[in-house]
């Protein structure tokens, strides 16, 4: 490799590692350190306690549904925003990022108010027998809101990069529009769709602020794991909170690695020259 003449490597990397250690790594290490006070059996008891398991089920179940909703509608939205023109398109495009910009507490109280029995939406759903606010459905609504941009923003550049010749080639070969989408376009955008889905899922699992207002927070029914951690903390059960936090951290870290591996694969997928099978 050529000699690098630029200055500041030691300073830049040194400061990066120091700041990373102080703000992120040391605090997370404290979490692991604290949980080491527990024996494996104790840890297992807390993590698989009835209430804890129920909360994990609620958290992962609603995050999964929300991420699936966003995968479907995010794909649709990204497609419409890239391929079609309609009045106000730039405005709509900017609005997609609202969940990134709007504080979660604001989203939480607003959604709770909208979907409550006397709210704008809840008022029309309740007579039909749908209760949204203060039920697990409310959790899904909140999680869908806060994870909405991920799939759209991951897919948009990928759809933009599809060469029009690919679609023309499929059409000349006799494929219908639907066949072209299913056999040619969807496989091309699938890695990005999965990445976006995983990002949305990962964000939804950890979400707290928007959910607690709309969920009703009934143990075993609509209590999410982050809320259970806070509840344990408020009862000064720091060890219990720590054990649950470790469970969540491990899962988050696994998801993060999965996303990175996926993105690495996307970047290298069809450029590597070696045989792939």
């Amino acid at each position: 490799m050529a000699r690098n003449v630029l200055p500041g490597f030691r300073l830049g990397l040194g400061y990066t590692l120091l700041y990373l250690s102080l703000i992120v790594l040391l605090p997370l290490a404290a979490l692991v350190f604290k949980s080491a006070e527990l024996s494996a059996a104790q840890f297992w008891d807390i993590a698989t306690g009835e209430r804890a398991l129920a909360s994990l089920r609620v958290t992962f179940g609603s995050a999964l549904i929300a991420a699936l909703i966003n995968a479907a509608f995010g794909l649709l939205t990204a497609w419409v925003l890239v391929r079609y023109t309609f009045p106000g398109k730039r405005f709509v495009d900017a609005l997609v990022d609202l969940p990134f910009a709007l504080p979660t507490a604001v989203a939480g109280i607003t959604l709770a108010t909208l979907y409550a029995g006397n709210g704008w939406i809840g008022r029309h759903l309740e007579p039909l027998g749908f209760k949204v606010a203060f039920t697990p459905v409310g959790i899904v609504v909140a999680l869908t809101f806060i994870s909405l941009p991920f799939v759209v923003r991951t897919l948009q550049p990928v759809i933009e990069d599809i060469e029009p010749e690919i679609e023309e080639a499929a059409a000349v070969l006799g494929a219908s529009r639907w066949q072209t989408f299913r056999l040619v376009l969807l496989p091309a955008i699938l890695p990005a769709l999965i990445t976006g889905f995983t990002l949305a899922f990962s964000r939804a699992i950890g979400e707290y602020g928007s959910v607690i207002f709309i969920a009703g927070n009934m143990p075993f029914i609509s209590e999410i794991t982050p809320l259970l951690i806070v509840a344990k903390l408020e009862q000064y059960d720091i060890v219990g909170a720590t054990a649950l936090a470790v469970v969540m951290l491990v899962i988050s870290f696994a998801l993060l690695l999965a996303v990175n591996a996926l993105q690495w694969r996307m970047a290298n997928r069809h450029s590597a020259a070696g045989a792939r099978r």
Partner: peptide, 24 residues
């Protein structure tokens, strides 16, 4: 139709590319 930049389907093998027109 043969395109200047080939427009092969990159996620399909050579075999599947050639078979595409028959499969659809």
């Amino acid at each position: 139709f043969v395109f200047q930049h080939y427009a092969l389907f990159r996620h399909m093998t050579v075999f599947e590319n050639v078979a595409f027109g028959l499969r659809v």
